[in-house]
């Protein structure tokens, strides 16, 4: 099971990203544990400079903007 975190202070793009990851996971029948991290101090421990950022299994795989569908699928297959 993939452990996924979305880092973001709660802007519209962050919410869209969470929703998109949920959708793609469902469409591909992948089981994930999805967490949203809104606390800025926690976000900064990942050293990202633009949000929304996505962390898969404790590794930052994406930062700044909504990821594309293909990109999300590639995380599931990795």
């Amino acid at each position: 099971m993939k452990n996924i975190k979305v880092l973001g202070t709660g802007c519209a793009n962050c919410k869209t990203t969470v929703k998109l990851i949920e959708d793609v996971a469902k469409a591909n029948n992948v089981e994930i544990s999805l967490k949203k991290i809104e606390d800025i101090q926690q976000i900064m421990t990942f050293n990202v400079m633009s949000t929304p950022a996505v962390v898969v299994d404790e590794k930052v795989v994406h930062a700044g903007g909504i990821p594309s569908r293909e990109k999300i699928e590639s995380w599931f297959n990795a």
Binding site: C14, I40, V48
Partner: peptide
Amino acid sequence: CSAIPLFIG
């Protein structure tokens, strides 16, 4: 919405 992470970074 990226202002803060950017600032700290």
